[in-house]
Design a binder for these strands. Structure first.
Ligand SMILES: [Mn+2]
Ligand SMILES: [Mn+2]
Ligand SMILES: [Zn+2]
Ligand SMILES: [Zn+2]
Lengths: 134, 134
DNA sequence: TTTCTATTTAGAATCATTCTAAAATACGCC
DNA sequence: GGCGTATTTTAGAATGATTCTAAATAGAAA
């Protein structure tokens, strides 16, 4: 689901965010091209198109996008950096231990049956599958 | 599975670790009494029984215990601290969002069916269930 | 314009964790 | 019991991701 430049503008406005050049560039990467990028990843990519952008702006923007519900922040065991996920639907993840790539696993691909005490109300399930591709 | 002071000594020796007073105290907490403690938790508890123990020693010890396979380090989304788990068998976790308590979920309580591409070799599955108790 | 607010920015601050290098300790051996 | 040596402990510095601060800039509204 690639968003056009105009659609990104609209999304930002809808969220009450001014569609600044910095934000448009960051969104072009985070919402369209990137796969679970860290702030470091985002900064590196954006630096090319927008030299001199400040690290603080990248942090500010991902926080604003998170508040707006346009991305979700995730942190996994294997890295000490937060990553940003443009897929805001419930889904799970697969970590390819060879390449370090993190892939989305659709809920349909995972069938879970929980046998928990009756008084437990489940709000969310987070799953990380680690493995390799042969 | 509570270990006696003598059993802890034995475990440490078997791992090639000298059973120092600091390590015995830390193990008494981490292996017996604690529930998924952070280094901060460990330091706070041990400080009572062993005033003046250094933070570096707590870090050194949990790392040594991890290498020895006596604990496993885990990091979850909801906290920026690593926690140490004395349950080194494969298992999952439940986070009580009200109390912040992290509970073990036995593999028997979770039935998973994965529908992944054939070339995928799964090495590990990590699950965190968030919820509340009514 | 003028004004008001949102955004950007550099750099300082924070916090968990790791590193360093020196002092203390444990343990095998005499 | 003392000795020699490797291990452990320790204080404090360093690191790295992230957050905070306060001043400069830009955007929107009037
Ligand atoms: Mn990355
Ligand atoms: Mn804790
Ligand atoms: Zn994802
Ligand atoms: Zn556990």
């Amino acid at each position: 689901m690639t968003l056009s430049s105009e659609e990104i503008r609209t999304e930002l406005k809808r969220a009450g965010m001014r569609p600044t050049a910095q934000r448009l560039t960051i969104c072009q990467y985070v919402l369209n091209q990137a796969n679970h990028p860290s702030v470091e990843d985002i900064k590196a990519w954006v630096d090319d198109k927008f030299p001199g952008i400040s690290l603080a702006t990248v942090y500010n923007t991902v926080h604003a996008l998170e508040t707006a519900g346009l991305v979700q922040a995730i942190r996994f065991d294997h890295s000490d950096k937060v990553i940003y996920d443009s897929n805001t639907e419930p889904h799970f993840h697969f970590l390819d231990e060879d390449s370090g790539t993190l892939l989305d696993i659709q809920p349909e691909q995972v069938q879970i049956n929980l046998n928990l005490p009756e008084d437990v109300l489940v709000n969310d399930i987070s799953i990380l599958i680690r493995g390799k591709r042969q």
